[in-house]
Simulated scan of single mutants.
Amino acid sequence: MKDPLLLENQICFKIYTAEREITKLYRGLLEEIGVTYPQYLTLLVLWEDGTVSVKELGRKLFLDSGTLTPMLKRMEANGLVERHRSVEDERSVVISLTNKGEAMKEKAACVPTQLLQRLEMDGEELERLDQTLTTILGRLQGKGSK
């Protein structure tokens, strides 16, 4: 039986370390297009959904408004997004892409492919990893079967 207190047997440490290494890879790729990793994630949501409320963006990215607001202000200052009050509910702030933010999609199109090349993973490995991580996240969030 494995010793549960050895660092090498800690799955959380392996996930944490892998996340840090992948974030380093992303940092290098995203520097080329001029955005940070959280900004890239925000752009992914906006490219997919179009306009989104700050609340919905936070829900999708698992970030609170205290983290999102300064980042969105920087993105707005860089001309990538616009923030405005919702017409339906003035308490809600809505985020949408500018033309520059929309054009960024073309620059970012190569990022996923480059990341996969650097990870040296084939489609089957990636699919298994995706399924495993989806299962773990679902269980941690109380959405999966026990």
Rank of each mutant, 00 (worst) to 15 (best):
M1P: 05
M1Y: 00
M1W: 04
M1G: 11
D3A: 02
P4D: 11
P4N: 06
L6T: 07
E8S: 10
Q10A: 15
Q10C: 15
I11R: 08
C12K: 15
C12L: 15
K14T: 05
K14V: 04
I15S: 05
T17Y: 10
T17H: 06
T17I: 06
A18H: 04
E19F: 01
R20P: 00
R20E: 03
R20M: 06
R20G: 04
Y26L: 14
R27P: 05
L29T: 03
L30M: 08
E31W: 10
I33T: 13
Y37C: 08
P38E: 12
Q39L: 15
Y40R: 08
L41H: 05
T42M: 13
L43T: 05
L43M: 14
W47Q: 01
E48V: 00
G50I: 07
G50W: 06
G50Y: 04
T51Q: 14
V52C: 12
V52N: 05
V52T: 09
K55I: 11
E56Y: 02
L57S: 13
L57G: 09
G58Q: 08
K60Q: 12
L61C: 06
L61A: 05
F62E: 14
F62T: 13
L63C: 08
D64R: 05
S65V: 10
S65M: 07
G66Q: 02
T67L: 10
T67E: 13
T67D: 09
L68Y: 08
T69Q: 14
T69V: 13
P70W: 06
P70S: 08
L72A: 11
L72T: 12
R74I: 10
R74P: 07
M75R: 11
E76F: 02
E76G: 04
A77G: 10
A77Y: 09
L80A: 09
V81D: 07
E82K: 08
R83M: 15
R83Q: 14
V87W: 00
D89V: 02
D89A: 02
D89K: 03
R91M: 04
R91A: 11
S92K: 12
S92P: 03
V93M: 15
V94F: 04
I95V: 15
I95W: 12
S96R: 09
L97N: 05
T98A: 01
N99T: 14
G101A: 10
G101N: 07
E102D: 13
E102H: 13
A103D: 05
K105T: 03
E106V: 11
K107S: 09
A108V: 00
A109S: 08
C110R: 14
P112W: 02
P112C: 01
Q114C: 04
L116E: 07
Q117T: 08
R118I: 02
R118S: 10
R118G: 01
L119F: 04
G123H: 13
G123V: 12
E125M: 11
L126E: 06
L126N: 03
L126C: 07
L126Y: 04
E127T: 11
R128W: 10
Q131I: 03
T132E: 14
T135E: 14
T135I: 08
I136H: 03
G138K: 10
R139K: 15
R139A: 07
R139D: 03
L140Q: 09
L140C: 05
L140P: 00
L140V: 13
Q141W: 04
Q141I: 09
G142A: 06
G142T: 10
K143H: 12
K143P: 02
K143R: 12
G144T: 03
